[in-house]
Design a protein around this nucleic acid. Structure first.
Lengths: 196, 196, 196, 196
DNA sequence: GAATAAGCGAGACGGTACGTCCCGTCTTAGC
DNA sequence: GCTAAGACGGGACGTACCGTCTCGCTTATTC
């Protein structure tokens, strides 16, 4: 009755997919693109190497899918999915994310690997970053009645997000990049968004 | 006065140092931290592996020093070393740097490798980035007579530099991050630096 | 009856064994014990180094087995395996062997390496030399009805074989050690085996 | 006044020659041609590597000369230099030499190295072996009044010397190759030298 | 119920890099 | 000009992983 015909032979173990993607993401975060070898991924997932290769043609494919898969598991995403989310809670969420070492590790690894493998970072940007930017842009346009061009608003977003990421990725390791710093950024942004 | 006694035996070949650091930096840019193996560095430099190991105890030491060394070779640095450099030329220099794929590759790799090896990025920050920031900060303070706190000025610098780097490292690959984009950033910065 | 369970995983490639032992023997003959490095053996056999190390724990083990293996491939051995081989054909075989540069090289290398590594020569002696000596001894005893002690017969064999090898290994390089020389040796041996 | 003009600069240390040749010979005996590296020879002689290379152009040159040099130091040689040495004492000498592990090691290494480097063994043969053979041949001819050809006598010498060396170099390691064995060989030789 | 087919763990395969050691050559300072 | 010291390019060492491959076994579908 169901549309999808079952294939012949032994079916794939669905738990393996889960375990492999989990292990892949963990290793990528911990040791980067090179450190996340199929060998290690298979070992950590408790799976034979062929089992990985049968499902994904390359490490990059696997990681891309693992990133997409992981996104669906993050409950916080729901907040960003709301049409008009609460600004305070978004700030909290943003502070929380930026302070998370795991997040920093993922993003740093993605940027590093983008030199030889741009697809991963592109996936991440489209999956995580762009939706959030679009949400913020829409909120700003609502607040401003659209009297500024998108370009200017986008530049302001770039400045806020860019400063935060710059601080997190490159800036000195002082733990200053917390709520106070973000609040300062937003205060400056308000001036840019106010009347000239 | 000198007092430093020359050591016995054949002195180390200074050309080898040069060749090794050059090869190391090239490979790091091309293939990242893992791809820059001592084996390949030595081969490209036309040097025996021991010759590398004699001078540097680890790949990270080598790369750190290679980055420091490379900085001294960049003539453009002179511009930034001037007490009161010309703003237009600085902007040109900045545009040129941000548009350079090599620069992007180095910085991206450094950020990626900072997860497991923070020293490299720290060296780069202290050698390249901080001096430029200090110069800009001083210029801004001169212009503003110091009526703003350092924190605010630093935040503005973060926003400009951060936005530029964000665009270069993460942002969509459109080649928009050129002179026009930077000019837009600076225009916004002027507003932040003007009277509230 | 067999009981030997096949082990799991991919079985070892029997052609690799063959190629490795062949390459090892060739290199040993050409360049001696030291020249026959695992690195070169693997390269010549078209095989990865691990593949060698998986099978043999040391170079000496490998060469010992290679010598044993090579013996089984020499068809001439069949002649010596016959119960009552034809004396003329044995002489031909002996002349042929002594004139073979390869044979001289193997034996010379084995003797040289026996100083630091006696096992190789011992294997060779037991595999090649002793069987032939036993065969000759048996033939002599048949001919003489056993009225001499083994010691005397063995001494005569020593004298014939020893003279031939001495000529081949140490003696001046004149190509005299051919059929005439061996025939002369055997004529002298007949006198020793005849009535006193 | 004297004919030989002293050259300029510091004269070579004559003790160095001695020490180097001694060390070279020792290492050759202990570890063979490959093991007797200039590095090790210099270290054991307590001398810099250049000091060795300045005097000899190659390892083989050095060893050849070391062998020649060593011969002059062996007092036993005087016995063989006598016109009509005492047969009993010669036998003693022979037994002593064949039983000496050092002698075996030298000869075995020389034979092994002759595959790639025949000069060493040739020197040894001409310096040590041939003179002794000539002496024995002369003695036999004196005793026999020359009624046999040289060839036959040489063959008998080959058989005795060959058997002894075969036993020492290849034969089973039983310590049988002592005085009794040699005496047996000589007894057999007497039969060959007697009337047909 | 037997045949077929695909998934699975295990492990061998060729290849590359590791960091160390030693080789013979070279290039310096010091006597 | 000799000496000791030590750097040089080259190459082998034995180990560890890499991604690919090839086994025997297991599990499911199909005939």
């Amino acid at each position: 009755m169901s549309g999808t015909r079952r294939t012949r032979g032994r079916p794939r173990d669905p738990e393996a997919d889960e375990a492999i993607m989990k292990a892949a993401l963990e290793l990528f975060v911990e040791r980067g693109l090179e450190g996340a070898s199929i060998e290690q991924i298979a070992k950590r997932a408790g799976v034979a190497k062929v089992t990985v290769y049968r499902r994904w043609s390359s490490k990059e494919d696997l990681l891309t899918q693992a990133i997409e898969h992981a996104r669906a598991l993050v409950p916080e995403d729901d907040l960003w999915a709301e049409a008009r989310p609460d600004a305070g809670r978004l700030l909290d969420s943003w502070v929380h994310t930026l302070g998370d070492a795991r997040f920093r590790a993922v993003l740093a690894q993605l940027i590093g690997s983008s030199v030889t493998q741009p697809a991963l970072l592109a996936t991440y940007r489209e999956q995580f970053i762009e939706p959030r930017r679009r949400l913020i842009l829409a909120a700003l346009k609502r607040a401003r009645d659209g009297d500024d061009g998108d370009d200017d608003l986008n530049t302001v977003i770039d400045m806020v997000v860019g400063a935060a990421m710059y601080r997190m990725l490159i800036g000195p390791d002082d733990p200053e990049a917390g709520r106070d710093y973000l609040t300062g950024l937003l205060r400056q942004a308000e001036r840019l968004l106010g009347p000239p």
